[in-house]
Computed example of a mutant assay.
Amino acid sequence: MDPSRPRAESLTDEPPGAWPDVLAHLEGNTGTAWLTTTRGDDGPHTRPVLAVWVDGRACFASGEGTAKSRRLVRDARVSLAVDTGRVHAVVEGTAEPVLGAEPLERVALAYADRYGWAPTPGDGFLTGAQGAPTAGPPPYRAYAIAPAAVYAFPAADDLAHGPTRWTFAG
């Protein structure tokens, strides 16, 4: 299945949302998102992150010594909750390190554009004199979430769709 065209399923009797429309809301979001990883005992560990959407995927930065980074090494399954003001969304999937100079540069540019934080990409990490507000101390590993499912719940009355689940083939 094409990752830009996931399968939509309405969670109510209302029509499902269109993925490109919801993705546009997510890409423009400049608020805090909430990332949940799993603890060793499979309990949840939720922390605020600044997420950016690059190449259709949610990305976040995390200092190498942080609890969330250590947990991601053990178990990369995550859930990311986002409120854009128009859509409440939950992304479920697997966090994968962003590797390669070009993808890391796109993540750095997205952070500069959305949040005014301008990390420097290089050697597999994001660095810079200014620290990341929610990522711990540098250097920062950038992660992209390979989505298994995305749920969106309209938060604005003028949206012409109901709660929707999009599933993505692996």
Rank of each mutant, 00 (worst) to 15 (best):
R71T: 11
V73W: 03
P163D: 11
L50E: 04
H25N: 09
G128A: 14
P139G: 11
G31R: 07
G93Q: 00
R165V: 14
A33W: 05
A160Y: 03
L104N: 00
A108G: 02
A89Y: 03
P163K: 11
D123K: 13
E96L: 02
A169Q: 07
V78C: 02
L35S: 06
L80A: 01
S79A: 14
R39N: 15
W53H: 12
V22T: 07
R57I: 02
V90H: 02
E9L: 13
L104S: 01
M1P: 12
F153C: 11
P3A: 15
A156G: 11
P6R: 09
S79K: 03
D2N: 15
V98H: 00
G56I: 00
A148W: 11
D2V: 13
D55C: 02
V49N: 04
R106Y: 06
V73L: 10
P139W: 05
V52N: 00
R77M: 01
Q130C: 07
A58Y: 00
A156F: 08
W19C: 07
A169I: 03
G43H: 07
G116F: 08
A144M: 04
P16M: 08
P137Y: 09
E64W: 04
R57A: 03
R86I: 00
T38S: 11
A67F: 05
A61V: 03
G43Y: 06
A51C: 11
P147K: 00
V82Y: 02
T38K: 06
L104Y: 02
H161K: 01
V98A: 01
D13A: 14
V73P: 05
G65E: 13
D157T: 15
G170I: 06
L26M: 05
D55R: 05
A112S: 10
D41T: 01
A110H: 10
A51H: 09
A110Y: 11
D41Y: 00
L11S: 07
R47I: 15
A156N: 13
L109I: 03
G31A: 08
S79V: 04
G28N: 09
E27K: 12
H88S: 09
R70P: 02
T12C: 06
P139L: 12
G128Y: 12
P119F: 04
L126G: 08
A81W: 01
W166T: 10
G40A: 13
T134Y: 09
P97T: 08
L26P: 05
V52R: 00
A156K: 09
R74M: 07
P147L: 00
L23K: 05
G124N: 12
G100D: 07
H88C: 07
L104F: 00
Y115H: 12
T120R: 14
P15A: 14
R114E: 08
W117Q: 04
P139I: 10
S10A: 15
V91Y: 01
V107M: 10
V98W: 01
R71Q: 15
G116L: 09
D42A: 14
D55Q: 07
P97H: 04
V52Q: 01
